[in-house]
């Protein structure tokens, strides 16, 4: 079984996986990072979205072995250094952008990817970008509001966006 090395949330990690081990299973079972969730088996719900080398990826739809040497960021890596909520996370709390919390890690990671590509998205652009993230609780209303608020906050204080 292959050994793989990743930089996970800025830290070097390694582990032994089967070829068939999905990234999400390596994160959850191999590394104990259970913040990334599995909500479907067809690559559609987006609860498992993480960033690989700076772009969003569905971690249930990629093999860990494919990513040897990659930089991976998960929801566990999204808070500020002092442990306080990052801008997007804080916006989700402020605007009630989550209820049961299960889809939330994927929503936050997708929102982060969006705001990296487009710092001032319209409501329509946000909704379009969330096409691969399903939420059953919020009706999306407050998720959209949260992302709008995060964008505004980042644009108001560009340092926070770093």
């Amino acid at each position: 079984m292959p050994d793989i090395n990743l930089t996970l949330n800025g830290q070097a990690v390694s582990g032994t996986v089967e070829n068939r081990t999905l990234l999400v299973d390596f994160l959850r079972e191999g590394l104990g990072k259970t913040g990334t969730h599995v909500g479907c088996d067809t690559g559609q719900c987006g609860a498992c979205v993480v960033h690989v080398d700076g772009v969003s990826v569905k971690s249930c739809n990629v093999f860990a072995v494919e990513l040897d040497g990659s930089k991976v960021t998960t929801i566990e890596g999204m808070a500020n250094a002092d442990g306080s909520l990052g801008v997007i996370q804080q916006a989700f709390q402020d605007h009630h952008g989550l209820q049961c919390g299960f889809c939330t890690p994927g929503m936050v990671m997708t929102a982060a990817a969006l705001l990296k590509e487009n710092s001032d998205p319209s409501e329509a652009e946000i909704r379009e970008y969330l096409d691969g993230n399903i939420c059953r609780c919020t009706g999306y209303h407050n998720i959209v509001k949260s992302i709008q608020a995060a964008a505004a906050e980042m644009n108001a204080s560009p340092v926070a966006a770093e």
Binding site: V49, V52, V57, K58, N61, T110, A113, L114, Y129, G132
Partner: peptide, 9 residues
Amino acid sequence: IGDPAVRNR
């Protein structure tokens, strides 16, 4: 095609 994360892979 698909969604942003799918398009990245």
